[in-house]
């Protein structure tokens, strides 16, 4: 895997708090590595403020050598939007899970996007609520078993997986950057995150990156099953790629296989 191929820690990582607190096989470490490398590449450690949500993302409160604020469930975006409005020279990074972004914080996400708030939002999508023990989330796949859908997600009763980047790409004003990456392609992920941060640096508009992430603990999967789930199951519903780039404002055509699998 890519993570083993690059054993060096990003400069912005805080060595004193490593090894990190995430479970073995968790996707957060990979995403935060990509984020760390993007911050290093852009040389923005001095200006960046990192906000993390409730859910496993909160475990990142001491992850970086960055000023960090750990907030409430779904409220990271408004906290950093408030900060950014008061101190526009800072770079605001909002880090959260799919529950924080698409369920309890959905109104903040939608409103921030429509205001084109100049912040960068990174969402780890692992198809369920991990910290609370594996409940169904807006992103849970049809038929997927969780603690609150023990017989598999019934789409008739509970709906279909929520397509966050597609929603954001649809409503975002011009200047937005929207992409979906995956922990299965770290080089691409770092590129997406770096573009998202650059977009904020250039003051063009909101940046939104969803990342398909892994949760073997709550998925009850071994390494091979974990990668299979991300690459074969999740990607059927959540196509990876850029949905909006501010350069020329062309909409990238992404194959929406997830709509009718």
């Amino acid at each position: 895997m890519a993570i083993e191929a690059q054993p060096q820690m990003p400069r912005v990582w805080r060595a004193e708090t490593k090894p990190h607190k995430f479970c073995p096989g968790c996707g957060h470490g990979i995403i935060l590595k990509a984020l760390g490398e993007a911050i290093d590449a852009l040389n923005i450690q001095q200006r960046a403020v990192f906000g993390c949500d409730i859910g496993c993302s909160l475990l990142a409160w001491d992850f970086f050598n960055l000023d960090t604020i750990q907030t409430h469930h779904g409220r990271t975006t408004p906290v950093l939007v408030g900060l950014k409005r008061a101190r526009p020279e800072l770079l605001a990074i909002c880090y959260m899970g799919d529950g924080g972004a698409y369920a309890i914080g959905a109104q903040h996400l939608v409103s921030s996007v429509s205001r084109n708030d100049p912040v960068t939002i990174i969402v780890a999508n692992n198809t369920q609520y991990a910290m609370t023990g594996g409940q169904m989330a807006p992103t849970t796949l049809p038929g997927q078993k969780t603690e609150t859908s023990p017989y598999g997600r019934d789409v008739e009763l509970t709906g279909r997986p929520m397509l966050g980047p597609e929603l954001v790409a649809t409503i975002a004003p011009s200047g937005a950057y929207v992409a979906r990456g995956t922990v299965a392609n770290v080089v691409q992920l770092k590129n997406f995150i770096q573009k998202g941060l650059s977009n904020q640096l250039k003051g063009r508009g909101i940046s939104f990156i969803e990342v398909l992430s892994a949760c073997p603990t709550n998925w009850h999967t071994n390494a091979a099953e974990t990668w299979h789930f991300i690459e074969k199951e999740m990607s059927k519903f959540f196509p990876v790629g850029e949905l909006r780039t501010p350069d020329g404002e062309q909409r990238q055509e992404v194959e929406h296989r997830g709509r009718q699998p």
Binding site: I69, V79, G82, R85, A86
Partner: peptide
Amino acid sequence: FTTIGGVLAG
């Protein structure tokens, strides 16, 4: 929460 953000900003 945005008020909190403004406070954090000083």
